[in-house]
Nucleic acid binder design. Sequence first.
DNA 1: CTTGACTCTCACGTCAACGTCAAGCTTTAC
DNA 2: GTAAAGCTTGACGTTGACGTGAGAGTCAAG
Lengths: 119, 119
Amino acid sequence: MRIGELARRTGVSERALRYYEEQGLLRPERLPSGYRVYTELDVAAVRRVRLLLAAGLSTAQINEALPCMVDEDELLQPKCSGLVDALAAHRDRIEEAIGELESTRANLNALIGRARPVG
Amino acid sequence: MRIGELARRTGVSERALRYYEEQGLLRPERLPSGYRVYTELDVAAVRRVRLLLAAGLSTAQINEALPCMVDEDELLQPKCSGLVDALAAHRDRIEEAIGELESTRANLNALIGRARPVG
DNA sequence: CTTGACTCTCACGTCAACGTCAAGCTTTAC
DNA sequence: GTAAAGCTTGACGTTGACGTGAGAGTCAAG
């Protein structure tokens, strides 16, 4: 398929898809005309990219992460574990922030008296 | 204390502290000279700001979050719960990313055969 | 009262992840 | 074969969270 269809199927703009290629996250074939040609695999690849972007990774980090997420064997273990660790650290920071907010909310609930259950 | 000391004590640059004020996250007093004067409370406030920034919130979101984290009563409940929800959603996205990476890692471990335990 | 450390307010620079034209090929439809 | 739709490569604009001086006032010490 070409860039327009991939954009529609992934919900990602053409500009973003070209940007991902520029960053080495996608490597589409080219027609003699210069048109980019993508495969079904690229649909999944774009989904992964968006997932990792949403999780807070940079394109550079994703560049290291993507090889880890392809179901092929090439022994790219070591990099992978580092990435999982980094993500886990990120998650921990978020957990901490949530914890502080929740405890403060609990304090407020207590102070206010007729504490609303949760929502 | 003045800005230099607060910067040293929090590990945050003076530029950042002025920026936080510009965004309404800090409201230091001023000396007749114009010098900013901070209190001990501001040390904790800066810590909270950094925590939330690290968790992925924008200064605008933090502006809504900070009132929730002050241990005073003023019934600012409703905003709070929305924020906790937003943070939780963010965390969930990260959990998802971690999950995918971990399962792929497991797959690779299986493929490679002599699977290294965890690290 | 002068030096040096500290602080002030502009104001432009940066980096990432795109948005948004512009100008010009290519492919598809009729 | 021509118009519309789709694609190409630039290249400049944008937003957020600051970095980095510039030029000038202020405060503590000798």
